[in-house]
């Protein structure tokens, strides 16, 4: 059909996120996991009021602990390893997702604005995320060193400005 297309595949994006981003994600995942334990905690509380068997407490606590550990140590790592981006002259490409792998192409001409954002945890680790908005969608590169994020934001903004709107 089209040999050119199958033989020379479009290269995958190759730029990783900052290494410290993984630590931020692990902290976030650990905080999220705490909410999971509300359920067994509630059950534990009700054992004081009603006469309930103890085994559901241990089973659910064990299950959530396993889930939390899996999320913090395996899923976040896989997610970090998968995350790649690349900024070309005419477009930005992102790749992400642990189970569902996504690849997005955002042309520079379609970029409406770029900004950097920082939550308290990201700020503590001197990281920032870069948000790229088109008229219809918003994409985020979730963790880069601050200088790099600023530099990337300015670069995308410049390339977007330079991109010829008349094609």
């Amino acid at each position: 059909m089209n040999n050119a297309a199958t033989s020379d595949l479009r290269p995958l994006p190759d730029q990783p996120l900052a290494a410290k981003t993984l630590r931020v994600w692990k902290i976030g995942a650990a905080a999220e996991s705490l909410f999971l334990f509300l359920l067994p905690a509630g059950y534990w509380g009700s054992t004081f009021v009603w006469d309930l068997p103890m085994w559901p407490l241990y089973v659910s606590a064990g299950f959530f602990l396993l889930l939390a550990l899996l999320n913090i140590f395996v899923i976040q790592t896989l997610k970090w390893r998968r995350w790649r981006y690349k900024v070309y002259e005419n477009e930005v490409e992102l790749m992400r997702g642990v189970f569902i792998v996504e690849r997005v192409i955002i042309p520079m001409i379609r970029v409406q604005h770029v900004d950097t954002r920082q939550g308290p945890i990201l700020r503590h680790y001197k990281l920032a995320s870069v948000t790229i908005s088109t008229a219809a969608t918003i994409h985020e590169i979730p963790g880069l060193e601050m200088e790099k994020a600023d530099e990337l934001r300015d670069r995308i903004a410049r390339l977007a400005r330079e991109a010829d709107p008349d094609e």
């Binding site: 189970f99 569902i100 996504e102 379609r110 088109t134 094609e167």
Partner: peptide, 12 residues
């Protein structure tokens, strides 16, 4: 020129 971005996804 109206397509704002193009995305591919793949589930397991």
């Amino acid at each position: 020129r109206r397509i704002q971005d193009l995305e591919y996804s793949q589930n397991p």
